[in-house]
Write a protein that binds this DNA or RNA. Sequence first.
DNA 1: TGTTCTACGTGTATCGTTCTACAATATGCT
DNA 2: AGCATATTGTAGAACGATACACGTAGAACA
Lengths: 351, 351
Amino acid sequence: MDKPTSRRLGGRVTIREVAEDAGVSVAAVSKVLRDAYGVSEAMRLKVRESMAKLSYRPHSAARGMRGQTYTVGVLMADMKNPFFPELIDGIDDGLAGTQYLPLFGIGHGSSSVETAIVHAMVDRQIDGLIMIGQRLATSDLEAIASEVPVVVIGHHAPDAATFDSANNDDERGGALVVEHLLAQGYRRPAMITLGRNDLGHADVSQKREVGFIDAMRRAGFADDQIRIAPADDGLDDVTATVRALLEGPEPPDAIFGWADYYALEVLSAVRALGFRVPDDIGLIGYDNAAPCAFTQNGLTSVDQFGREIGRQATRLLIERIKGRTQAEHFLVQPKVVLRSSSAARVTQPDA
Amino acid sequence: MDKPTSRRLGGRVTIREVAEDAGVSVAAVSKVLRDAYGVSEAMRLKVRESMAKLSYRPHSAARGMRGQTYTVGVLMADMKNPFFPELIDGIDDGLAGTQYLPLFGIGHGSSSVETAIVHAMVDRQIDGLIMIGQRLATSDLEAIASEVPVVVIGHHAPDAATFDSANNDDERGGALVVEHLLAQGYRRPAMITLGRNDLGHADVSQKREVGFIDAMRRAGFADDQIRIAPADDGLDDVTATVRALLEGPEPPDAIFGWADYYALEVLSAVRALGFRVPDDIGLIGYDNAAPCAFTQNGLTSVDQFGREIGRQATRLLIERIKGRTQAEHFLVQPKVVLRSSSAARVTQPDA
DNA sequence: TGTTCTACGTGTATCGTTCTACAATATGCT
DNA sequence: AGCATATTGTAGAACGATACACGTAGAACA
């Protein structure tokens, strides 16, 4: 018969051992751990000391059975978008100094995968969920939001009451693109974007389309002069669509790619077809992701201040976790960042 | 007083309710869940039916208290490397058809952040851990490996007994670069890579350096003709180093950037300084990440078959989880993929 | 002195699952 | 028939933390 005091399991230090070492009750240690009410300074110190001495780490799975896990889930639509790291940096900013730690899931642009990941996260008792560019419908989101606090990024739902959102004003951004291109002297802008999907107006790409169309109308273009060409991402599809645009009748003199990762493929296609940027054709993206600044890309883009969006999303989430139930929707105003890809016509007014 | 049979908590269906519905014991349901021994076909069917009917999902946190969570952790060094998505695809391949689900952590290139994330994952009772390009020392790895099955990617430790690894042969890859550049007619290749760090020969960039140096020697270069310039990543540092190389005495006629994400910055710097690629200077990267194929990059690169590496890493991890204790180290042979950035001299033999 | 309040601690049921030990029944072998 | 051995199922104790309901000591006040 062993001493009953030394029965530790699997080498892991438990709250019980800490309590023994500090000479207090298990409940007291738990309180210290959670910064809960009813702990004297002396006790807090004593317990923290024992925890450090034994290098105790709370067992999240066990925590999850009764209380919080101090884990927030972050669902990313995919890994290939160079804009997302900026959002993640913002999320890290927002989490710094808290007990919370982010764990990521990758949706690979499939709503069934996303659903599976969200379920898995909920099953693992995450305390909150940030979804970046997810493909789920608002109704699905509300179902999830009833189980766990949710903040979405890249999905406009200003009327949603059960979850929060953090976004830039994509509709305004779409308009900025038109204003910028016209100011640079371009006369026949076209947009190229993802093929039709069933996301309705929540989807940011569609918001950008709407802004683009409205601004074109305001600038005096007739509806049949406003061109929005669809292409799935990937070099093959984008190249085919770009070729159809540029080698067809009345080719555009500038192209707006709905997002940077996508506009960089457009740039590749344009160059592969033998056109010069910006002399033959202007180009602008959206996000102002890091690679835009590379000399070989020099891509003008609409900055949506991703880091700030990430920060705000995190703030909203933590507020939700702490108990806020009224929805809040954060919106930041985007801004055009000029680079060489759209700088052509500025010196030669009117064609 | 409520019927004691209908006491479900927080809206969640539990194993108890499934058992009740199917008319069997809780233990039996658990067995079905785990595909454990001692369940008749009839019972399996009955239970699965009840689970579907009640749309039961096992509570991972509770599982974690006794058994597995069926979650594997994946620690990525950072988010900005366009090669990693390929590895992730491979990991997804390997996990497809199993019960396991990956959750990701992002280390931001800091070993303290990495340690925190690994701890958090272990505390959450992950069943296994894949580490991609991590910065921890082999000794730290062994400590972690004693708590949980570990497979590393991008870290050579062929003698490690407590964890597995999956890699390409980076030393051979470094040599391939030299052979390729010389075959293309370049005469003064240089390498540019990360600044000194303390990772010793485990680090893949150092393996590539070793291969580069050895191949240069074999080709007849004296040691003082073999140039390896350090630069931290980021356009500023890379540009400064590239300028020093190209505007200094005896400038190289080709540059090997240690990884693609980094070589694309080199390309940006080279162009910003007014040099033409490949005419003035050849360029080659490593990884054969997706953006290499863009026309504006056209970056020759060493393909290390990331998807296969991801697949193998996952296979190794699952084997470990199932009980294998003998270490296994997978190695794939890399291959040069020619693009325009190094195609210059092939038509004009010797300078 | 007695009463009430507040601050600080404790004991212990509980969370949803797994897993060990064992019971009950069926099957195989002499 | 009698006994050993599979096979299939059950009961109930963990697992490690949380949180509720209390207990107690001391201060404040009449």
